[in-house]
Design a protein around this nucleic acid. Sequence first.
DNA 1: TCCGTAAGTTAGGCAATCCTAACTTTTGCG
DNA 2: CGCAAAAGTTAGGATTGCCTAACTTACGGA
Lengths: 273, 273
Amino acid sequence: MSAAVPRRAALTASVEDYLKAIYELEGYGGAAGTKELAAALGIAPASVSGMVRRLAEQGLISHQRYRGVRLTDAGRRAALGTIRRHRVIEAYLAEALGYPWDRVHDEAERLEHAASDELVDRMAAAIGEPETDPHGAPIPARDGTMDERRLASLDDLPPGTQARIQRVEDDDPARLRYLGELGIKPGAPVRIVDRAPYGGPITLRIARAERLIGSELARHVLVIPPPGVTFSHAAGARSAVPAAGRDAAGSARHAAGGGKRGRRRRGSAHDRD
Amino acid sequence: MSAAVPRRAALTASVEDYLKAIYELEGYGGAAGTKELAAALGIAPASVSGMVRRLAEQGLISHQRYRGVRLTDAGRRAALGTIRRHRVIEAYLAEALGYPWDRVHDEAERLEHAASDELVDRMAAAIGEPETDPHGAPIPARDGTMDERRLASLDDLPPGTQARIQRVEDDDPARLRYLGELGIKPGAPVRIVDRAPYGGPITLRIARAERLIGSELARHVLVIPPPGVTFSHAAGARSAVPAAGRDAAGSARHAAGGGKRGRRRRGSAHDRD
DNA sequence: TCCGTAAGTTAGGCAATCCTAACTTTTGCG
DNA sequence: CGCAAAAGTTAGGATTGCCTAACTTACGGA
């Protein structure tokens, strides 16, 4: 009935979740903190400390006590594998089985730990090797490479800008439904008509209609940064990460952008994809 | 990342595996024994005793010490739910994703614990609500009803009999591949041309060719019993089950049949579907 | 520079599963 | 009927993962 039916190198679902979360929290060069990780995974920080020890022992992460963790190459490979499975599954559910985009995430969250790479490859082939999931998040290639361009959020754009929606963060099904109703989906062209000051509402022109959205919501809608736009989004813009020795790229990373960054509410049970 | 993303009443994968195994071992009215169950699940008998206590506490099975277990209604419902998920997934993998029939089982074995009923329903709808999986095993309906007709095996048929292959047990991928090469698949018509005595080889006429198969292999190939044929197969013909007070149906259950039944080698890591 | 707070760790527990070893019940054979 | 083998159970451990409580470290501001 059950017995040994491993999939790959057989990481537990928990381990895969940790690696995925660390990957996302590392973002563009930081280390992931224990508390952050705990919040992302919806568990207690003390539990993270324990797992971190085990992951480090397995060579999947490197850990500097009190300073956060980073993925090793092996860890990053595993994380990207899980992310690929997740996003291909999301795309497949939406494309081949008619799932609405606000419900693919939770289903994929479970299947990603059970699906074999063969299954995922067959799914990808069946829907024409998509490059992004239904929320616009890039799908890592089989070889573990992924488009990691940083994106700007609608909240970063000055009035008058035109852009094409690239990606929407999929934290919250209700938010996705709402965005869908507004016509805000990957691929849709938008234009920033106006921005009220002090984080006030933003007026958009989308699908020939004008829409008002709050700055908070706008921050979850991402576009390819038009020339000259500095941006704040960083695939999960971390707040106070104990900046333990960043590595590559150091450009406009902490540049201007919306108002208060920091404070990422991170629902504890959800996340992006 | 992970956190609470339950599926249903949230039984663990382990519990689902136990219930499924018990369902299959109960067969047509027996109780499932600890050792059998252990063999089916590929774990030690002592481990089964422990789980049995917990399942009984949860009201999923009833247990008579030293006498085996039976599913309660709740347990049977859960088991049929898992079996439905398993078989629909198998059918979907074969039908929609081009999986060869010898590889659907293992993939389904993992996915059945992660797929939601909604996903399974969508899969079933996408391939036209199949009634059986690729090996011919009946798929329980959403309401938990299932065709439980007993089948005869090729080994039960006298020479001259004609029949249509109904189902093939999917224990072993290699065996499935071999049967596939012989043209032995659900739906195919066969005719027993000859049977050598003492469990010797059986000559079949299938797809206009004559084939020889051993009695052991023939026992894994099931057909609807032609009138007058007594049969031995019982969806996994149990051997020495401590027959603790059978309940309903008592017909030809222990009737004639091939030679030595008993001795079910049950691979410990595989099983039927 | 000093300290309080926030972040991170350790200690001690618990639940689910599985294991081996040793003990108990059943059951079938002579 | 009696006993030994087979089946089933209990005892005692290990692992994975998570929790709470209590302790330690790091860091920013006065």
